[in-house]
Design a protein around this nucleic acid. Sequence first.
DNA 1: ATTATAATGCGACTAAGTTGCATTAAAGTT
DNA 2: AACTTTAATGCAACTTAGTCGCATTATAAT
Lengths: 135, 135
Amino acid sequence: MQLSRIIIGDGLNIENIVKKKNLKLTSARRELLEILFYAKNPLSYEDIKENIVMDKATFYRNIIKFEEENIINSFESNDKKRYFEIFQQPHPHFVCSRCHNIECIKERLDFNLEGYLVENIILKGLCKVCNKTSI
Amino acid sequence: MQLSRIIIGDGLNIENIVKKKNLKLTSARRELLEILFYAKNPLSYEDIKENIVMDKATFYRNIIKFEEENIINSFESNDKKRYFEIFQQPHPHFVCSRCHNIECIKERLDFNLEGYLVENIILKGLCKVCNKTSI
DNA sequence: ATTATAATGCGACTAAGTTGCATTAAAGTT
DNA sequence: AACTTTAATGCAACTTAGTCGCATTATAAT
Ligand SMILES: [Mn+2]
Ligand SMILES: [Mn+2]
Ligand SMILES: [Zn+2]
Ligand SMILES: [Zn+2]
């Protein structure tokens, strides 16, 4: 909710975004973008499918389009699934190996890795909640 | 080659390792561990299957056993595949989005992420080689 | 050598994601 | 408002990594 405001700015709604990219605004696309805009964490197809009425193929074809147009970005977790979120500033993600939650990490992780170009960071382990309750 | 010496120490061969964990030493297990010991990078089933004679189910069942016994560890890349390596000190892995190579990162990446327990780090982007040749 | 049990091969299966194709709906044009 | 063009959709079939049940076989202990 706040996220979508921050990213798309005032006056930019789903209609504007989709049309600005020369995509047709279908009900499938509106549904999908609404869910992603209001999500606090990245979501997989499995997370979303209960709340949408489109076919799986339509889902993935729209996901591909949205990624091409930089409306969303995605990454693979360690559960064989791909997770999607509205495109933001690149930031790390944390995958909890106990509760399987996936969180966006706001903190900057500063390290230097000479010669490489790091585009994406995925951390796995215990999230704050699970780490506390693990004695 | 050097790696396996370092980890398992002098006098510790595949026979010892397997028997120490109360696993039966089968030809499938010997084959699999030999390949993993001599590998410079983590390997997937697809990487290995040409060089082994066991069934896919046997491969994965042994992988599971080896992981339970901390003989190997594994992680998922962004190509939907799982990669396996002989268990070592935890260290990050770099997945190149251009050449799709997977490298073990020796450098320590020091950062603090308050409250979390980071068990595993996967970096994605351009490896040294691809980063140089990308202008 | 006999035996108990763990490991194996085979085939069927699951789940994420992809593709071809005929149909439908969006958006522009008259 | 009807017409047309083209993109988007649903459906079904497919691909691929990994899993599982079950009958058979190999390992290692006795
Ligand atoms: Mn995020
Ligand atoms: Mn490694
Ligand atoms: Zn957790
Ligand atoms: Zn590379």
